[in-house]
Design a protein around this nucleic acid. Sequence first.
DNA 1: TCGAGTACCGGATCGTTGATCCGGTCACTC
DNA 2: GAGTGACCGGATCAACGATCCGGTACTCGA
Lengths: 224, 224
Amino acid sequence: MQNVWFRATATQRGAPPLSRDRIVAEAVALLDEEGVGRLTMRRLAERLGTGSTTLYWHVKTKDDVLDLALDTIFDEVRVPAGGGDWQEDVRALLRGWLQALLNHPWSTTLLSRPLMGPNVLTRSEFLHATLAAAGFAGQRLTGTAYALSNYVIGSAMMQATWQAGDEEEVREAAKRHLHAQRDRYPTLATHDPLVGDEWKDAFELGLDYLLTGIQSQLAVFKGA
Amino acid sequence: MQNVWFRATATQRGAPPLSRDRIVAEAVALLDEEGVGRLTMRRLAERLGTGSTTLYWHVKTKDDVLDLALDTIFDEVRVPAGGGDWQEDVRALLRGWLQALLNHPWSTTLLSRPLMGPNVLTRSEFLHATLAAAGFAGQRLTGTAYALSNYVIGSAMMQATWQAGDEEEVREAAKRHLHAQRDRYPTLATHDPLVGDEWKDAFELGLDYLLTGIQSQLAVFKGA
DNA sequence: TCGAGTACCGGATCGTTGATCCGGTCACTC
DNA sequence: GAGTGACCGGATCAACGATCCGGTACTCGA
């Protein structure tokens, strides 16, 4: 290469310069398309038009990539304005939370790592603040926030598991399996697994249970 | 080797003959001691005094081992006699369910795979049957069972995450992290994370919420 | 009694992975 | 125009899941 003008800038070789944000964004795309099992530093690097070792300049380990990718999807969760009916605020937040997880089913397999990213913390702060405004305090506030979060996490995992790629196939196999053993599992065998909108209904049902319980708890120690 | 007596039987070489059950039992022990990240077919085989390739005669893939190990721990969950107060039966089952998961923290990282083993199904059948006896039916029964199961699963994951080996260290780091950013997360920063028995209390609190909600739902359509 | 079949085992090997070493290349400063 | 530091990547390492293929010992029928 003789001439500057014929020579691409170093940082232009592979599109915009590599950055932690670009890596994470591409990781999310890769995870969405192929799932957590196929996220490799090499494959990720290839998609970014770079070498795999280069990623390690921006990121310490692969786990870092996963942690960052996981937190990233939570910025899809709209944080309610707040100040309205606390129950509706909680409902809106948790619905968004569930939806974000389901939009990226791989995320549910990563939930067993500490969620401490800024996006998660912002949503968690809103939940705590809303419960505080509703009248909770101290350990009871923490416990109630956990109850709600845990319910969402569990629901997302369950639904993502049964709606995975092989959806129809796995569900049919499960159904046959149960029906074949209906002597052993009579009640299970006569109740079909959830499909489509029934998942949403089930989620709302459980949320109703929780909020009903929380409301009555609130009434008790407000009355005292 | 000249003599039969000086020659060990093939099946005695490595203690009792290898079987799927022995493999799974050893896998659970290995997982308990070293966690899911360190379970490899080679290490598992070594503990069994055999070659890694041998395991593949008894088991199709490593995932099979994990699925079998996961189902195995659920036989720790005592199934209540049933027929008593349905709320107490549900409570007893779910407490045992949570405890089994926490006894084997690695299990919570595997919950994103379909739970279809005999031990799981037996417990799930009991939950469904108990709710049926309490007055639920159809999709509402399924939804209620999911709500309860999902709560347990989410609770186990959350607790296992924050009580992992590095317990103190991670928790302290999180606390410092939050306190340093208390402008951004005022409510979070003033509420300490749970410790020790507080986890149990929080679990019971959420369970109370759910059962209160379920009870009132039951009253509604029993009255109609 | 013996020979064939079957259940079971493992050394060697393949392709892939996360991670690191160490040597580049370019833009920018003084 | 020499040097500094941000950024990149080829080569390499140990470890992994899985498979091939050739063994070994027990069993059962004739």
